Computed example of a mutant assay.
Amino acid sequence: MSILVVDRWIEYRGTVVHAIDTGVRQAYAYLSPGIAITAAGAPDAYHPENIGSGHIRRTEWPDGEWRCALVADPKHPRRPLQQPAGRHAGYFVSITALSDVSRARTDPGAYVDAGRIPYLVLPASFRAMEGTGDLGDFVVAYQPATRRCSYGLIGDIGPDRSLGEVSTRMASDLSGQRAEARSGRGLPPGPTLCLVFPRSRLAPVWPIPPAAIRGRCEYLLKGLGGPIRLVQLAEALGEPAWEETA
């Protein structure tokens, strides 16, 4: 097992972020006191009657800057586009910053479905910092209380909130039960470890099958010493610096 050096790097909105260096690959990790759930990108995320998997107020529709969360109707740009047919007819088209550029912006399938894909949301001001990573970079989340992992990627850029916003699928992976963005049910208990690998994204960045996301995350985690490192990091992040030789 390689030498793993963990140093306090930066603090963002009360969360201490630690840089990790094995001499081969760099990463960073933080322990989020509590995570938030987003439904963004799911075809059933938002509905004008507020019956979606996410609460409509998260989009700021109808009076706020909803265009950051929903696709505008090309024919009626002052209102969001509603899906015209299919299982989710009537639902708005919810967007994520990561998308399939080969598809039309109006295509719900272009975006990262929060109900199917584990992803992490980076606050915009945090993402703007050098070394914090970009859309499509890979992420491993670990929940010490449940001892469950989730293998995902950076899938969206959000408002300048605290670190630790994840998709409904990532939250479900960590809690072991169905998580709901709308109600907040199914949140994993206690702090959650987020381990991010900047400059790890593939080309094309999206789409990537869930099995390929998992395989890439397992490969990156192996470079740090394997899954046991998640347990060690979760226990060690309270220290100002930590070094292990094995």
Rank of each mutant, 00 (worst) to 15 (best):
G164D: 04
G186D: 09
L193T: 12
L187S: 04
G184D: 10
S183P: 04
W206M: 12
G164N: 14
Y151K: 03
R147N: 14
R178S: 10
Q177S: 10
R161M: 12
R161Q: 08
D160H: 11
S162D: 14
G190C: 07
A203Y: 10
V166L: 10
R178Q: 06
P189S: 02
L174H: 07
D173Q: 05
R214K: 06
C149H: 13
V196C: 15
R199Y: 15
P209G: 05
G186N: 13
R201F: 15
G176R: 14
Y142I: 03
D160P: 03
D156N: 13
T146S: 13
A212D: 14
R182Y: 02
S167C: 13
Y151G: 02
P204I: 14
P189G: 03
G186F: 01
D173Y: 01
S172N: 12
L195N: 11
R169W: 09
P207C: 00
A212N: 09
G155I: 01
Y142Q: 06
A179G: 04
G190T: 02
P207H: 00
P198K: 07
G176F: 05
G164I: 06
A211S: 09
Y142L: 02
R161N: 12
S175Y: 04
A203Q: 13
A181E: 05
P189E: 02
R178M: 07
P198R: 08
A181Q: 05
A203C: 08
D156R: 01
R169E: 07
C194K: 09
T192S: 15
A181P: 11
C194F: 10
P198A: 00
G186H: 07
G158F: 04
L195A: 10
L187H: 00
R201Y: 15
P204H: 03
V205I: 12
R182A: 01
R161Y: 09
V205F: 11
G152I: 06
L153P: 00
D173M: 07
R182T: 03
T168P: 02
P144L: 03
A212C: 14
E165A: 08
G164E: 03
T146D: 08
P188I: 01
R178T: 15
V205G: 09
G152Y: 01
S167N: 03
G152M: 02
L193N: 10
